[in-house]
Structures are given as C-alpha cells and as structure tokens.
Design a protein around this nucleic acid. Structure first.
Lengths: 246, 246
DNA sequence: GTCTATAACCGGATAGAC
DNA sequence: GTCTATCCGGTTATAGAC
C-alpha cells in the first residue's frame, strides 16, 4: 500500500517509465528473496536481473532494507485479500481471529526463509524497519485496523474500556505468532498452526471474560499497567543522529 | 564462562601470551562496543586499538559475531556476581525473582545501545547467535539453571509437574523483559524496571496458583500445549549447509 | 603446530559525470 | 534517471615467523 507514492492512480493505464522500472526492480528483488533468501541476494544481482545498473537500483530504493519496507506493504496487501472471505462470512470471533492469523502465515509461507533473515534487520530498534519505528507506522496502523475489524465485525461483546486497547494487543499477539513462525522449522510449519489453534482459544476466552464482573479488576490492572508503561516519559530526543528520511 | 577453552585454570598466575592477546582483543572490543555501538565499531579499529593486525584478530575470533558470544558469556558472569547477594539473603520468591531480573538489566545497562544492534544479528534464527541456536546452548543452559536456583532456593511451593518446565518459562520471561529493555528509550530505562515490578507480581501469583486444586486443569492444559509444540517433528535435517563448526 | 601480518575479495553504499 | 568508479568494512587467502 505505502509502496507507491507516485502520481498515477492505481488502476490507471499508463504508469510512467520510472514507475515501471521501480516495479521491475521490486518484483525482481522479491522473487530473488524467495528463491535465495535475503543474504543470498545481492544488490548487484537484483540490479543485473532487473537490467538496471547498481547505482540505478539505489536511485529507486535507498537501501537494501528499503526493499523490505516494500515487502511489508506487499505482504499486508496479500494478507488482506486472503482475509476477505473469512471476514465476510464468519461472525464468530474465534473463527475470524483464527482465519486471519492463518491467512497471515499462509500468505507469508513463500517468504519463510527470507522472513528469518529479514527479522534480523527488523529487530534493531534503531532501524527504520523495526515494526515499532516511526517509519513503519503506516503498515502498523493498517495491520492494527485489521485487528479492529476482526472484533468489530464479530458478534462478540467487549467491555468498553477494553475495546480501545484490544486491537493493539491483538497486533502484539500476531507479532508473537510471527516470531514463533520465523523460528518454526517443523514440516509445513505445523507447529505454528497448532500454536494458533490452541492460543486463539485462550485469547478469545480471555476477551469474553473481560465482560464478566468478577474478573474486571484483573483486566483493569493489566490495562493500567499498559497505560503506565506508556506514560513514563521519553528523554528529550537528541541522539537520533540519522538524517530524518532524505 | 564459555569464553576460555584454553589450558590454564582461571585463577592461575601466568596466562599464556596467546591468552593475553585474546583477552586484550576482547576487552578492547567490549570497550569500543560500549563507546561506539556495534555497527560503529569496525574490526579494523578493534585490531588497531588492541595493537594486533586485522588478520590476527580473526585468528582469535572467527567473526565479529563471535565477539558477541564472548559478550554473552561475560554478561552472564557479571549477572551471576550481581545476583549473589539477593539469592543468598532472600527467601521470598518474589524478592528473588525481582532481584535477579533487575540485576540483569543493571549489569547490561552500559551495553544498552550495543544490545539493540546486537539483537539484530541474534534475531536471525539461522545465526549461531540466536539464543535458540545450538551454539548458544551453554549460555542458555547456565541462564536456565539460574532461573531454577531462584525457585529452588525460595520458600515457595511449586507443583511437581510444573517444576520441571518452570525454569524454561522463566527464561522465556527474562527474554521478554530483555526484548522490552532493548526497545526502551525511557530515561534510565525506568519503564523496564516498572515492567519488572509489575509483572513479577503477576508471575509469582501465577506460580503460587499452580498449587491450587481448582486451577490445576488450566495449568495442565498450558503445559500440554508446550509439550505438544515440542512433539511435532522437525523435518529431517539436511539443508543446514554450514560446515559444523570448523 | 602456534601466532602474526599483508593483500586481496565481496557486497552494501555513495559520488558525480552524463 | 542512468551509469561508472570508488569507498568502506566484514571476511578470507596466504605467506611467513616463532
């Protein structure tokens, strides 16, 4: 989604030559990432296969890591498509959540190896690729909105105060699943699917419990902790150092 | 701990010249990591400041990442020292757990920036530096044993079946805290300390609940899930490719 | 066999000409 | 927008010195 900032409306007939070149580089890169992993794919190779010079590739993507941002966008778009059906047809919260999580893993499967190496650069909190970084805000926001959609389109009741925090919590949950998946070397990543099936059950049960009066205090405590953690002030930013996106 | 495989017993008087050179390189590297971060420290600089040639530095440490393994060892040793007091003096589980966690953060503080960049290479599941990798087994084992010590030296009662899994769970909990700490940019990492204080409370309460009859089934379910996840077989290993430690 | 050093190689990234 | 030439840093090859 956030990968095309340029002129033409998405559906229009004639993308500029530049746009086509950019697209060609991206497609080539994604293909090579699938085929050879992240480290196994050199910028020189991407440039060669996309039939542009090395410098030219860098004209379109400021760094190898920026190709990953593009991957994020693509991955989320694929995920959305794969989710539509279950979100349209099911009202049951558990089925919706399970469907969305499985769809994420399924659409990501071709990139499993890549994702591991990818995670490596994404894990650095200073990297613009960290899912927590400002630069990742757009994708994170879209993903969080999807989480919200799971709940709001379901027939489940959620306590008001919990409702606001829930999408972020579900997103964190999704990150956890992905983290597990990245390390999952079982055949066909069966363990990850098992983890989803089992934990979805627990998570949904917890959400439903949140409406239950006797349990409320516990949830309030947890929510308060989350709020507190956000309240402790950051030190005045001064060392970021990186030239804020040229 | 695992950083000296060589001859001399630790306390002995005359470490070989080689051992001193190795030590000099490591100390220099750790100092530079603290001062300039991981990416900001080049192997050439480490070599220069340690007054050895570049090639020589590589003789002692197979790669820049291997310096990180050495850091792990050092970090754990420092942690142990910082833990002794609380482990000797307190019997209360909560106090012990809290003390050990805080000690980990305190001793790691000088490396906060470094740890972020470090985590980047550690996050790749294929990397020998992943905390889940076989190569990290020794440090992981030691750390898990420390977790066991927290519980076994306390006056808390733990259900038998839970006892075996608990150290691993606590280690995962510690990893979570560290992950949070790495991303924590609050002043003096106050958020992390807050997170510790609050979650220790919850964790200890859960452990104590494990002895309560009515809750047992819930714990059994969770333990069973963990077991199941381990049971799903790995595919026959064949693609590891890396020459198993030359 | 243990240690040390120099000179490459490779790949990510940049400068600057066209 | 496209290229070539170059830098920089991790890593390796390899040749010697002890």
């Amino acid at each position: 989604m956030s990968e095309e900032k340029k002129s033409d409306s998405p559906g229009s007939a004639k993308p500029s030559k530049a746009e086509r070149t950019r697209q060609r580089i991206l497609e080539t890169a994604l293909r090579l990432f699938r085929e050879r992993g992240y480290d196994g794919t050199t910028m020189r190779l991407i440039a060669a296969e996309a039939e542009v010079s090395l410098g030219n590739a860098y004209y379109y993507f400021k760094s190898k890591e920026h190709l990953i941002q593009a991957y994020y966008g693509r991955s989320h778009a694929d995920h959305l498509v794969a989710c539509i059906e279950v979100l349209n047809e099911k009202k049951d919260l558990k089925a919706r959540l399970r469907g969305v999580l499985r769809a994420k893993i399924e659409t990501s499967q071709p990139y499993h190896r890549f994702a591991g190496q990818l995670f490596k650069t994404a894990a650095d909190p200073a990297s613009p690729l960290s899912p927590f970084s400002p630069e990742s805000m757009p994708v994170r926001k879209e993903a969080t909105e999807l989480m919200e959609l799971i709940v709001s389109g379901s027939d489940a009741r959620v306590s008001k105060e919990f409702e606001e925090e829930l999408p972020r919590l579900l997103w964190t949950y999704l990150m956890g699943i992905i983290l597990y998946w990245i390390h999952d070397s079982s055949e066909g990543c069966r363990r990850t699917y098992l983890l989803i099936d089992r934990t979805v059950d627990i998570v949904v049960r917890c959400i439903q419990l949140s409406t239950l009066a006797p349990i409320r205090p516990l949830f309030r405590g947890a929510l308060k902790l989350l709020a507190e953690l956000r309240e402790v002030p950051e030190p005045s930013e001064e060392e970021a150092g990186a030239e804020a996106d040229g």
